[in-house]
């Protein structure tokens, strides 16, 4: 156990050192990412004002809160893309990883978890700037703030596990893009990324409870902006735990068959 902890801490430290080397690139990446929620925010704020101040209970300030928290959740949601597997196999990086007495899942999880600390530090000044411009209505209780921290990491684990498992499809077919695109489109529509889930039709709101996307994205935002009851927060955290376990279970099931398919010829 202590050896695993030592590995996780060392790999997280490595990720922090590496990502700080690329602070300018990270900033540009982050600024590029901010464009998306700012567009949503401006559109929804305009709609709210046109409809007399609110849309589905959201005021302009509530939308500002939603989309500013969105930027942090989006950063936390960045994990190993399934597209990375193709390069990993083709360039021989996977061979280098497989020679180690450590499951690559741990290697990646620790790396991305370490990267998150850099993302959070770099996000703070951006959040302050956005708050000064858009004046969000954000007043969480201490309990909501604490639950948000857990939910934020919970969302990371859910998305990490599922996308890692999805990446393993690469071992079974060369036409992986279509599968990945389908996943990302569903995620965009049903996670709360495009618009808050509570603005969706009732049947969609029911459906998303049974899919993983909301638990990785919309749920942590709703926790912090104060839209959920304590019972809903606990249920959400349990759903995150369940989806995280599901992701790990999928990886556990698929890993050996995937390795059997790993057949890189030569170098």
């Amino acid at each position: 156990m202590s050896a695993s902890l030592d590995f996780y801490l060392t790999q997280m430290k490595t990720a922090i050192v590496v990502q700080f080397q690329y602070r300018v690139a990270n900033y540009f990446y982050m600024i590029g990412m901010i464009a998306e929620p700012v567009v949503y925010l401006v559109v929804w704020t305009t709609v709210a004002r046109a409809q007399g101040g609110t849309v589905g209970g959201y005021t302009a300030e509530a939308f500002a809160a939603y989309y500013i928290v969105w930027t942090l959740v989006r950063n936390m949601n960045i994990v190993l893309t399934p597209y990375a597997w193709e390069n990993r196999i083709r360039q021989g990086d996977l061979a280098a990883e497989l020679i180690r007495p450590l499951h690559p899942f741990h290697f990646d999880l620790a790396y991305f978890a370490g990267w998150k600390f850099v993302a959070i530090v770099m996000w703070l000044p951006i959040a302050v700037a956005l708050a000064l411009i858009f004046k969000p209505a954000l007043d969480p209780t201490a309990g909501e703030a604490a639950a948000f921290v857990v939910a934020l990491w919970g969302g990371f684990f859910v998305r990490f596990g599922l996308l890692w498992a999805l990446g393993l499809v690469t071992f079974f077919t060369t036409r992986v893009s279509a599968v990945f695109e389908l996943y990302f489109t569903a995620e965009l529509l049903l996670s709360g990324r495009l618009a808050p889930i509570s603005l969706m039709p009732q049947w969609v709101q029911g459906l998303v409870n049974f899919l993983p996307f909301k638990w990785a994205f919309g749920f942590p935002i709703e926790v912090l902006i104060g839209q959920l009851t304590p019972a809903q927060i606990v249920t959400g955290l349990l759903a995150q735990a369940a989806w995280s376990l599901f992701g790990v279970g999928l990886v556990w099931l698929l890993w050996r068959p995937s390795l059997r398919r790993f057949a890189a010829v030569g170098g």
Partner: peptide, 16 residues
């Protein structure tokens, strides 16, 4: 992107 000494330390942790 990092000095080799840090990669060595990572290998220490991986190989326990």
């Amino acid at each position: 992107d990092i000095p080799a000494i840090d990669s060595f330390d990572l290998n220490r942790a991986i190989y326990r």
